[in-house]
Design a protein around this nucleic acid. Structure first.
Lengths: 231, 231
DNA sequence: AACTAATAGAGAATTTATTCTCGATATTTA
DNA sequence: TAAATATCGAGAATAAATTCTCTATTAGTT
């Protein structure tokens, strides 16, 4: 068993570091785009790095996690790399999802292009508001929330997306858990409590905003002091 | 100049580490909630940590960045801590923003509760589609995109939010830059190119999805092998 | 007033992530 | 064919983030 195998095995056992996981989609998108727009079949870390303004070694280590091997002087096969990323992230298999909260955000997600590439298929949406129910948005039915648990069990859907207002997020989570959810993608800006075996990822806008806000604040402080402070 | 002062100064000069910045809003939310629902005035890192399932020392170091000092055996003043976080992130000052793309996602953001707490005020939205213009959503006017640059300069708005489909994101960014944007919050899943002095933060759903997808994939692999593989 | 328990704060130790360096290899060019 | 060059892959070095350990301080308790 060579070194690469060891690393790949570890990546499967312990999972890739989160920073790596968050960069893989960037490579994925770039690769797909290159495949579409240009005719090239190979790519090197150097090029990927300069396109995305990342260190080439970092790109190489990330790619290593997916198990793809390259060739000196040439780089990687674009097609092979794309497949490897899909396989590594589980984007090669279809995951069906229920969405709770058919408001604007929910509707936006239902029409989100490219989720298909990630194997994510939102099969139905649910809402408490009867006015929002019985509609069809982007080809998906919106049903009353009371139907969620039953349908979820029956259809064996294991993935839930929460796009309800914060104050109802916990209820939504409870229903999804009752329906047998294995994972929940929570867009509400609240911490939801679920059993330990349920995976939760929060999409918290305020966390990103904080990063941006502080950068702006520091930039403003710099310009105010006429560039005296260098970072 | 004591040690704390040194650290705070550094946090102003170099900025806090991103992981810290992303955790501060979690504390902020918890503190606000505690202030509203309970009558307590003080809080310790231990409590914050156990509430949010974070290490107490980590919480303490994060708080240290904001310049707040606590008292042994007691902890921190909730009010003081809230203000310190607001000040540190720049959430104590109002930032006016223009939003480009009045689709579902844009509409969702316009109605997002709590942006006010972060000092973020979306003052107007813009769209190419004439059908979407001249409406008022959540009290904000939607205007035609052709008006963006002029209005932005006139009103001295320096913050832009992009919620257009990926294929138009670059155009939107160009307009915002032309209008004098200092910072852009990009919700389109594409890399936008802007001058170096413009701050960009991407809200890329695919990056989060990648983290979640891989966790699910690994979980499925574990259960398939009947728990033989432990992480 | 002494004792106990809880906590902040400082600094060390550890872990994790990123970047650098070098050798091996494949491709292209002279 | 030989030389030059770009790249991967491995490992070392560095940097960043997290966690641990200890001390001093404060509030409550006996």
């Amino acid at each position: 068993m060579d070194k690469t195998t060891v690393k790949v095995t570890r990546s499967i056992l312990k999972g890739a570091p989160e920073p790596t996981l968050r960069r893989l989609p960037l490579y994925y998108r770039l690769l797909k785009q290159l495949r579409e727009t240009t005719g090239r079949t190979g790519i090197s870390c150097t090029v990927i790095g300069s396109e995305l303004k990342l260190d080439a070694t970092q790109v190489r280590k990330d790619i290593e996690m997916t198990g793809t091997v390259g060739r000196p002087k040439v780089g990687y096969e674009i097609n092979e790399l794309i497949s490897a990323i899909e396989r590594f992230l589980g984007w090669d298999k279809i995951t069906e999802a229920f969405l709770v909260g058919a408001g604007n955000l929910g509707e936006a997600l239902m029409g989100y292009p490219g989720f298909t590439d990630c194997g994510l298929s939102i099969v139905a949406a649910f809402d408490v508001d009867p006015n929002k129910c019985h509609r069809v948005i982007h080809g998906k039915h919106v049903r009353h929330i009371s139907k969620l648990t039953g349908l979820m069990r029956r259809m064996r859907v294991q993935f839930g997306i929460i796009t309800v207002p914060g104050e109802h997020a916990q209820q939504a989570a409870d229903l999804l858990v009752e329906g047998g959810a294995m994972a929940i993608w929570n867009f509400a800006p609240v911490k939801i409590h679920v059993p330990e075996n349920v995976i939760v990822t929060n999409e918290d806008l305020y966390c990103s905003l904080a990063v941006l806000s502080q950068k702006m604040t520091r930039r403003l402080a710099e310009t105010r002091s006429k560039g005296a402070v260098k970072s």
